[in-house]
Design a protein around this nucleic acid. Sequence first.
DNA 1: TACCGATATGTTTATATTTGCATATTGAAA
DNA 2: TTTCAATATGCAAATATAAACATATCGGTA
Lengths: 125, 125
Amino acid sequence: MAGSKGSKYFNVFLNYKFWLNTKTGDEILDKSMLQIFKDIEKEGSIQAAADKNNVSYRKVWGDIKKAEEILNFSIVEKKRGGKDGGATTLTTDGENMLSAFAELEKEFNKAIYKTAKKFFHSLNG
Amino acid sequence: MAGSKGSKYFNVFLNYKFWLNTKTGDEILDKSMLQIFKDIEKEGSIQAAADKNNVSYRKVWGDIKKAEEILNFSIVEKKRGGKDGGATTLTTDGENMLSAFAELEKEFNKAIYKTAKKFFHSLNG
DNA sequence: TACCGATATGTTTATATTTGCATATTGAAA
DNA sequence: TTTCAATATGCAAATATAAACATATCGGTA
């Protein structure tokens, strides 16, 4: 398996990514966006979540906007003004989708682990 | 499931990709590279395979070079000169890795199909 | 030995993504 | 009513990635 000694493949790892996208290929939700949304939930703001993940507020804001336009429902509820300048929380729809996606991620990890193990095993004898 | 009516998610599809990469994130082999290698095998040249896949020879050549450097073995054997200008074939090591990767792809597809089905089911009731 | 087409590779150009910047808006609290 | 920090958004600058271009090399075969 990757990382083990005595193999041609020891310096190689299997990686994967999955995401929701539209017919036209526009990406809506992937693992990193899931993390962003989780952080929005935890931090209460897009700004904080963006900082935490080292991406620009501009990008996150745009990504969310696009996703919501395509999905045709709100993932987050954003408020402006107030003492803290504003805040963002997840909607129920958003929460549902995200928890389903998180569940999917777990399933994927399991499936991937098994097949990857087999893959490296078949290569390395 | 994606594509069905009566769902908030009807216009969204689940997609995925997987690949071999190094610790530092350099990508070595993914589905599209697998296709390139298959075409190299079939066509007998990098040039032809690149054309067939609408990517530049320059890129494919560079990708192969990088992959081989990282993997530390040759995936292809390249010849220059001669009547046809040259030719490229897969090495045994290359063939082995590629068939293992192709097998992996099949396994993935199965696993993914099952989990994806469950995902959309859980979303759309 | 001249020719042809593929390999080999540096360099430049084009395209796509992100970031960064600027500026406006908002509204609770001091 | 001034303040503050987050949201909202257009636009320019910076990065990353790939394509295009330009040559050089190579070696069977005509």
